[in-house]
Design a protein around this nucleic acid. Sequence first.
DNA 1: CCGTATCCAGACCGATACTG
DNA 2: CAGTATCGGTCTGGATACGG
Lengths: 131, 131
Amino acid sequence: MKHTGSPDAALLDVTAPQRELLDQVLDKWSLQVLDQLCGRPLRFNELRRVIPDVGQKSLTATLRRLERNGMIERVVLAARPVAVEYRISPIGDSLNELVDALLQWTSTTLPHVEAARERYDGATDTEAARA
Amino acid sequence: MKHTGSPDAALLDVTAPQRELLDQVLDKWSLQVLDQLCGRPLRFNELRRVIPDVGQKSLTATLRRLERNGMIERVVLAARPVAVEYRISPIGDSLNELVDALLQWTSTTLPHVEAARERYDGATDTEAARA
DNA sequence: CCGTATCCAGACCGATACTG
DNA sequence: CAGTATCGGTCTGGATACGG
């Protein structure tokens, strides 16, 4: 668990393509869409139902962005009326593994984080109380 | 490279504490601050210099948030005028490892992503041209 | 040197209405 | 069903000025 040296700070620069990719793929809704799509494909309104509080607009934008970056595939089914199915791609699948690692990390560190928050909030509170 | 099943979809819900933690720690500036701080501590204005385009306000907010979540430590040095040093914590260090994995992922998949983008843009262009 | 306070333009996001 | 178009409020984030 020892981190040694940054790999390359330039990769994190806001203008770096790697950084832009992360931004387009790690946002609020993308993670949930990717997660829901792993395993089985889902339709547009199924996604709306299964992801709480997502609006049409946001979901559409998220799906388009993920499709453009090759994370998911949009499949138009021959049906009346139109039916569209979204399925995860191999690349999207590989991203999901990393997200799982991230999620695992949050779960194990959450107790420490909450302890840190209480310490911080307590300190700033008493500080404010003195003023 | 096979992803099998979501670990727990509920963890990704916007209201889930795990999800909130990720939001507070994976944003634009946080990643760069964390990356810069790994190895050696830095002062406030050193961070400003080394991270391109970050404003005082954003940097301050980022540092406070990271401190509150226990990712970094704020050390006030005995000096005139005031000198403050920020150093990474063990938790922040463990996060950096995951970020490195993410960065590695972006680097290896970037060619595929760019290919996907060209396909997508080309398809939507010709589609628009027909209209 | 290390911030906080304030103001303001622009992005974002939900609600709504409408189309193929 | 699966979107597109538009409008209005919110919230972010940069620029600026000032304080400890």
